[in-house]
Structures are given as structure tokens and as C-alpha cells.
């Protein structure tokens, strides 16, 4: 139901800094503005949901100049979503 993650990388700054830890609520019910962790080939990624079109989520990093996200690799499918961040600690 819950999962703990450590953030690696800087594309979610300033909201989530490198090394910060987050608590995830495992769900695929997400809305625009939610920060989600999703499964990308070979790694789990953390990004913010910017747009939703059916089962396709457009995700971006908060630190847009230093983020590779849906602007580069396109939409993320809902089935890739692991959950949404409910707490950082």
C-alpha cells in the first residue's frame, strides 16, 4: 500500500532535492499536479503530472531546464504508475 523512495537527481528541485526521501501511496488514481513515481525501463522515475489524456500521462520535472521527461520520451502510460507521493521526509 505504501513504499519508501530516495530521490536521486535534480530534475524535481526545489520541491524534492537529491537525497530527500518520499513516502508513496500505491495507486494509479492520479490527478494533474500530483508527483508520481512510475516505472521506466530499468528504473523508477519521479516526475510531476502535467496533463492527463485517458490512460496517457504527460509528466515533467519541476526543474524544467534540467529534466528529461515527457517532452523528450512522450507520455507515460497509467499502467506504469507505481503511486503518488504523499509525504517527503
Amino acid at each position: 500500500m505504501f513504499a519508501r523512495y530516495e530521490v536521486k537527481g535534480r530534475s524535481m528541485e526545489p520541491a524534492f532535492r537529491q537525497g530527500e526521501r518520499v513516502l508513496l501511496f500505491k495507486t494509479r488514481k492520479v490527478k494533474i499536479g500530483d508527483v508520481i513515481v512510475f516505472s521506466n525501463p530499468g528504473m523508477d522515475c519521479i516526475k510531476r503530472v502535467c496533463a492527463i489524456n485517458g490512460d496517457s500521462l504527460f509528466v515533467e520535472g519541476d526543474n524544467k531546464l534540467h529534466s528529461t521527461d515527457s517532452r523528450d520520451y512522450g507520455a507515460v502510460r497509467k499502467e506504469q504508475v507505481i503511486g503518488k507521493v504523499i509525504l517527503n521526509y
Binding site: R4, Y5, M12, T68, Y73
Partner: peptide, 21 residues
């Protein structure tokens, strides 16, 4: 409490990496 849990079991990594994939 979560920080204590983290000491016992390391959390997974969520990549916010700038240059994936």
C-alpha cells in the same frame, strides 16, 4: 518513524535524473 524504518531497510531509488533515458 520512517527515518527509523529506513535505517533498518533502505528505501528504493526514484530517479529524478536529468538525462534519462
Amino acid at each position: 518513524l520512517l527515518r527509523i524504518v529506513d535505517m533498518a531497510s533502505k528505501p528504493k531509488t526514484a530517479h529524478a535524473h536529468c538525462d534519462i533515458p
